[in-house]
Design a protein around this nucleic acid. Sequence first.
DNA 1: CAGAGTTTGTGCTATTTTTCACAAAGTATA
DNA 2: TATACTTTGTGAAAAATAGCACAAACTCTG
Lengths: 209, 209
Amino acid sequence: MNNKKVPEPVISRLFVYLRELIELTKMNIRTISSGELGVRTNLSDAQVRKDLGYFGQFGVSGSGYDTNELKVALEEILGKDKTWNVAVVGIGHLGGALLAYPGFKERGLNIVAAFDSSKRKIGKKIKGIIIQSIDEMPKTVTNKKISIGIISVPAKVAQEVADKLISSRVKHILNFAPIALNVPEKIKLKNVDLSRELETLSYFLANKK
Amino acid sequence: MNNKKVPEPVISRLFVYLRELIELTKMNIRTISSGELGVRTNLSDAQVRKDLGYFGQFGVSGSGYDTNELKVALEEILGKDKTWNVAVVGIGHLGGALLAYPGFKERGLNIVAAFDSSKRKIGKKIKGIIIQSIDEMPKTVTNKKISIGIISVPAKVAQEVADKLISSRVKHILNFAPIALNVPEKIKLKNVDLSRELETLSYFLANKK
DNA sequence: CAGAGTTTGTGCTATTTTTCACAAAGTATA
DNA sequence: TATACTTTGTGAAAAATAGCACAAACTCTG
Ligand SMILES: NC(=O)c1ccc[n+]([C@@H]2O[C@H](COP(=O)([O-])OP(=O)(O)OC[C@H]3O[C@@H](n4cnc5c(N)ncnc54)[C@H](O)[C@@H]3O)[C@@H](O)[C@H]2O)c1
Ligand SMILES: NC(=O)c1ccc[n+]([C@@H]2O[C@H](COP(=O)([O-])OP(=O)(O)OC[C@H]3O[C@@H](n4cnc5c(N)ncnc54)[C@H](O)[C@@H]3O)[C@@H](O)[C@H]2O)c1
């Protein structure tokens, strides 16, 4: 165990290990080596060990990691014993897909509120959640203890939606709009830029050797 | 201009610069400094200049970059003069959202085919595209010159879908299923793991200082 | 056109992240 | 219990990425 701050890529990979460990325990596989875990996650054995090394010593020389023990340890480290409430803003194609996805809840991320500006949509119920007007955001965020906001509105209104989320006291934001948002230091902002991912692939087509 | 290989994060950012330059030219802003471009994209001025430096010298000391000139140069570098054909496999919530998104076409990424395994869906038409059976993939990929495949099927069938795409001669893959896929070296694979993005945010909630 | 002010391009430095590589600690076998 | 494996944990090296800082190049102003 060391005390250095943990790089974000490490955190991100821990979720991948955890996901795999959940599968392994379901399959009743009791131990796994860093090498095998690496194969299953497309990462190197050294990477697996180094990542875990940020949080302690979980393995046994010669045999590897106890899958259940490591799973429990990672759940603890990653806060998987807790659940978090999430709001989605912009219930269009993407927002609707997010609302419909059961995988978030399975991972302790409960979408408990949905907001949109369209008169046609407000009041409609999707997957048990009533779409609300933006005006109700501050009240709802407080009442429902929402800590994460997802932005899936068009780019040109994304900044104002971000500001509204922040003034409503959401802690962190996941943004799908293809635009750079400005948020205060303390707010953790993650961007998912789908066009950019696809475009990057197209670059390799255009510049193939 | 230097000859070193271009890091992928650089490529990715060039698309962000380009997007901004398109806005700037629309707004009839003729020149922009690296500093200002950095502010607009949440990047440092040095980063902007370094990134551009991989491809040449585009700026003018004392005044900055000609927006239109740089836009044209980036379009050339990034292959934006060409268009690419894309197939989506798995027309569920997410696949449907991707099909409906007009932004891809605007960026030269044409979704020209959709595949699903569900009898209920095959034959149905979404946004002008008829959903086909997986069996038709090899023929369609060839006929429609599809070079990128998007995987939006459940994780447990994602590998077989990837294999099918590859044997159908798709060049690169964008994968939304939360699982590590194995693909040949020459295939560029990008993963978008939405749960992981959200979970990473929840980590910072669980471990806030 | 001289002097003040801007901004680029880039070598160098710093930081972050990954990989290497091996002693130490365990397991398995007989 | 000895011997041959296997696998961990981790410093130290390497690679990848980002940031600094400044001479050189250009603009602007009076
Ligand atoms: N759908 C995709 O596959 C895709 C791909 C890449 C990027 N994106 C990005 O994701 C975002 C959402 O995409 P989408 O396809 O779901 O768009 P969409 O048009 O289907 O949905 C946008 C929704 O936001 C709502 N909205 C508009 N202004 C609002 C406001 N001020 N407050 C609250 N709600 C508001 C609209 O009523 C609509 O329901 C966009 O920024 C888009 O660029 C989407
Ligand atoms: N929707 C989300 O917000 C979200 C979030 C995170 C991750 N994901 C991931 O994205 C993927 C798609 O999610 P979704 O919500 O669209 O799921 P979905 O269930 O709505 O759609 C999946 C589609 O794939 C089709 N399918 C199943 N097996 C197939 C096969 N062998 N060949 C072709 N098509 C097949 C199904 O018929 C269905 O239409 C999943 O891997 C999911 O884990 C989705």
